[in-house]
Simulated assay, not measured.
Amino acid sequence: MSITLTTTAFDTLQDSSKGLAQPTPEEATFDSDSEDGIEIIDNLWTIPTFEDKYAERQWAKEHMAGAFRVFAKLGYTDGAGGHISLRDPVRPDCFWINPYSVHFGLVKASDLILVNERGKPLMPTKFKVNKAGFMIHAALHKARPDVNAACHTHSPYGRAWSAFGKPIEMLNQDCCFFYNDLSVYEGFGGVVFGKEEGENIAKALGPRKKSVILQNHGLLTCGGTVDEAAALFHALEQACQAQLLAEAAAANGCQKKIIGEAEAAFTKEKSGTAEVLFTQFKPEYEMILKETGGDFLE
């Protein structure tokens, strides 16, 4: 016997965006015929879609500004360093980036800067563009048409683990987000002021992977939405923290137990999708929306 329940994943989504297209109702199937008698629930995650590209632009910018506020709360700020980029839904050959030397905790949607592939702002702005940030994100968006958003900051644990020039190990369930989906850029070429260094980072990421550890530098993650890229960044930062703690314990004689290949692959397949990662960021976005009163939406 099976019972079909019609539901939407984000009926209670708190978002002030205008023109948001409501997700198409999904079919969540509760199957009582499974061998163990446990009801199986599927199709609970839905990424909003839009018919109006201008409405999509506004929604994505608001989530980008929200990501900066979340990153500020989590301590991922480092002076003028760090950036998130967003491919423009209206003009996909251009992207939005945060203003240079503005604290993540102050960024608003209206502060974001739309630049073309040469770094020229396409709308009036009182802010400057971070040259290193532009070089990294311009090369990435050009090399990876599938990437709509990318996050890079000098977070504390990611920066510390990057000194080893090694990937993380599959130490826990959340590390499996990165199973066969994490690169290491081993050739630190100094602060990214040159086009070549940005291209080298994009090459290190490769044609399909979504995350890269930049040796002696930090972390970079990307995704189809800002939400996915931000969720991956937070997860990778936590994975680096776990790795550092595990290494310290191992140095004192504690033996690490690494998740097996088959188990890691299965966990990645089930929990590492764009929809799950989008949902991973949803609670953070909604909490920062409540805590700030939504001032970053301006």
Rank of each mutant, 00 (worst) to 15 (best):
I3R: 14
I3L: 15
F10R: 12
D11S: 10
A21R: 12
P23R: 01
E27C: 13
S32G: 13
S32P: 09
I38Q: 13
F50R: 01
F50P: 00
A65W: 00
G66Y: 05
A67H: 14
F68E: 05
K73L: 11
H83P: 04
H83Q: 14
I84L: 15
P89S: 02
V102I: 15
K108P: 03
E117T: 10
R118M: 09
P121I: 10
L122D: 07
L122K: 12
P124G: 01
K126I: 07
F134A: 02
A139E: 04
K142Y: 04
K142T: 12
N148W: 02
H154P: 05
S155F: 11
S162N: 02
A163G: 07
I168V: 12
E169W: 08
C176L: 02
C176D: 03
F178N: 05
N180E: 12
D181P: 08
S183A: 15
F188K: 00
G189W: 00
V192Q: 10
F193H: 11
K195D: 11
Q215L: 09
H217R: 11
L220M: 14
L232A: 08
C240H: 07
A248I: 09
G253T: 08
G253P: 06
I258G: 03
I258Q: 14
A265Q: 07
K270E: 15
G272P: 10
V276A: 15
T292H: 11
G293E: 03
L297K: 04
